[in-house]
Design a protein around this nucleic acid. Structure first.
Length: 573
RNA sequence: GCGCCGAUAGUGUAGUGGUUAUCACUAGGCGUUGCCAACGCCUAAACCCGGGUUCGAGUCCCGGUCGGCGCACCA
């Protein structure tokens, strides 16, 4: 009994959407090839993503290497944190997370114990699976990053990035300058990321090499109202809140405005991108009734994220599949990179009006102190700035030595200074899209079988926006000049950037079926009337209806149909 | 990584240890046909990889790879 997954993957393989990678040597789990049609469709999905994020939002795209030096991932926490301590039971061969088992046995600070400590302590405990006393186990780190070396001699460690996000963070100072030192702004990146999954399954749902489209939007920590929130304030869609999940409830349709007001969503920024994501997924052809937004429970949320939602698409095969993650990552990443790199990752925010601030300043008598303390003078000056002065002078501690500075060697000035602004480390709103999962969802939902003239017709009901081939051109017969007219029409469409496929092979019905199967939304047929009156038929994939249009109008009509600015029904008078 | 199951033309499949490995669809060529997988003729195309048992292996055994399911994993 074959389900939709099997049918659609069989079609995808046969017609050139998705192939197992390096098949001639045996495929490798977690890697796939996009064939000619798949690569085209994926590109169209990515370009729709660009329409939203780059064109509509104005967040420019950058492109960083997929290999990063070790320091990046030390700072991001991936070197230490993207690994799991695991061990295998010597009796039953089961694998376990060492820290999880340790917690079950109530070890104190199980999460921070070293591998050696865990080995020593676990030796006396029983295997959670088979119940035998574990004895000697080997606790090892399994890091999900692919490691490599940079340059000859393997001196320098590099990692394949596990997310594209870090590039936007490490480029932050340059991006800030590019956006002329103002918040908010955003940068996006579409590219490959890599995770060495232990056991990838489920076709293109869990890959070791996959394509992400991520946006990092840098906002003022206290200004999380989106300036264009009105665009989506009334947008209503199903939200599956953490509260509803705890109570075993269901997703409920809420408007973004209400969701923010009721505190279901942390802020307008998160809500804005939830709605934008919904709109975009529908634009690539995801059915709204198979789409919901699930909030992370407190315990599954990364420790630095203040709110996190997954856009989940319902798959007939896999159930609800998380396809997009939208998180408020706060200032975690920028602070980490600032600390590890020593580079400032803050923005100077000017106040509307300069603030007058009362400030006490201790001004040392440089000439006397300098002569008296010589090498120590510099450290003493620094210490004095933070000292608490008394009428009898003050004590400062330099290199463990307490030195008394008499009151006549410094001056205390109470002054009012103008402060024009402050340094702020922005918070980051991160919508992160799994392009491959989106592509799978599009294919699965587009797959359909109907009956035409008593025969089963397989049809991919792809949106014209993502269909790899946008229109097919058929001469009814490949002779009598029909082929020439059809070729001319094909070229006129190519000139408009439309991917039109000419096909004169086989019966006309067979050619329609071939195109139905790869989701080509429209087909134009040149017949003998075309020679007389310069008209052709245009046929709609889904309804299989035809309309007669002038050859001269073909490019404009096809462009309008593909763009969605005109419906096929409007052609049928 | 463990357990169970599977792997045969492009796709889906048949195949008692013994001829030249079955059939359908698909694809290519020729003819025919004049708007929805028509028809005729012709052609191309496969036993996952490596060992073993045997006179002989697509078939039996062992190991591997890939895929599916269950477990574990999925910051």
């Amino acid at each position: 009994m074959s389900d939709v997954f099997e049918k659609v993957m069989e079609l995808a393989k046969r017609r050139g959407f998705i192939w197992p990678t390096s098949e001639c040597y045996g495929a490798v789990a977690g890697f796939i090839d996009y064939g000619p049609l798949g690569a085209m469709m994926k590109r169209r999905v990515e370009n729709i993503w660009r329409d939203f994020y780059v064109i509509q939002e104005g967040y420019y795209e950058i492109e960083c290497p997929t290999i990063g030096q070790e320091a990046i991932f030390v700072a991001s926490g991936h070197v230490a944190g993207f690994a799991d301590k695991m061990f295998q039971c010597p009796h039953c061969s089961e694998y376990f997370r060492a820290d999880h088992v340790a917690e079950e046995y109530c070890f104190v600070n199980a999460g921070t114990m070293s591998a050696d400590e865990l080995e020593a302590r676990l030796a006396h405990e029983k295997c959670p699976s088979c119940g035998e006393v574990l004895g000697k186990v080997e606790v090892f780190n399994f890091n999900l990053m692919f490691k490599t070396t940079i340059g000859p001699g393997s001196q320098r460690t590099g990692y394949l990035r596990p997310e594209t996000a870090q590039g936007m963070f490490t480029d932050f100072p340059r991006l800030l300058r590019f956006y002329r030192d103002k918040l908010p702004f955003g940068a996006v990146q579409i590219g490959k990321s890599y995770r060495n999954e232990i056991s990838p399954r489920q076709g293109m749902i869990r890959l070791r090499e996959f394509t992400q489209a991520e946006a990092e939007i840098f906002v003022h920590p206290n200004e999380k109202n989106h300036p264009k929130f009105s665009r989506y304030a009334g947008y209503t869609m199903p939200l599956y809140t953490s509260d509803a999940q705890e109570k075993k409830g269901e997703a409920v349709a809420v408007s973004m405005k209400d969701a923010v007001q009721k505190g279901l969503i942390a802020n307008e920024y998160v809500a804005y991108y939830l709605a934008l994501t919904h709109q975009m997924l529908v634009a690539i052809g995801i059915r709204p009734d198979r789409l919901r937004f699930r909030q992370h429970m407190c315990n599954e949320r990364a420790h630095y994220a203040s709110d996190c939602w997954d856009a989940e698409v319902f798959s007939e095969r896999f159930g609800w599949v998380e396809t997009v993650g939208i998180a408020d990552r706060t200032d975690y990443d920028l602070k980490a990179h600032a600390e590890h790199s020593g580079t400032d990752m803050s923005v100077f925010i000017q106040y509307g009006e300069p603030k007058k601030v009362q400030r006490r300043r201790i001004v040392p008598n440089m000439s006397v102190l300098g002569k008296q303390y010589r090498q120590k003078a510099k450290a003493i000056f620094a210490a004095l700035e933070k000292a608490e002065p008394t009428p009898n002078g003050t004590d400062v501690t330099v290199d463990g030595e307490t030195i008394h500075i008499p009151a006549d060697l410094f001056e205390v000035r109470d002054e009012v200074v103008e402060v024009r602004g402050e340094d702020v480390v922005p918070h980051v709103i991160e919508p992160s899209y799994g392009i491959d999962r989106m592509c799978y969802a599009v294919l699965e939902q587009a797959y359909d079988e109907d009956t035409a003239d008593g025969e089963t017709r397989v049809v991919l009901r792809l949106s014209p926006a993502v269909a790899p081939v946008q229109v097919a051109i058929f001469p009814l017969m490949a002779r009598d000049g029909l082929d020439t007219i059809a070729e001319e029409i094909t070229h006129s469409l190519h000139a408009r950037g439309i991917l039109a496929e000419y096909d004169d092979s086989g019966a006309i019905g067979r050619r329609y079926r071939r195109q139905d199967e790869i989701g080509t939304p429209f087909a134009i047929t040149v017949d003998y009337d075309s020679k007389e009156d310069r008209t052709v038929t245009i046929r709609d994939r889904d309804s299989m209806k035809q309309a007669r249009i002038s050859i001269a109008d073909v490019p404009e009509i096809v462009c309008a149909l593909v763009a969605g600015s005109r419906t096929f029904a409007s052609l049928c008078k």
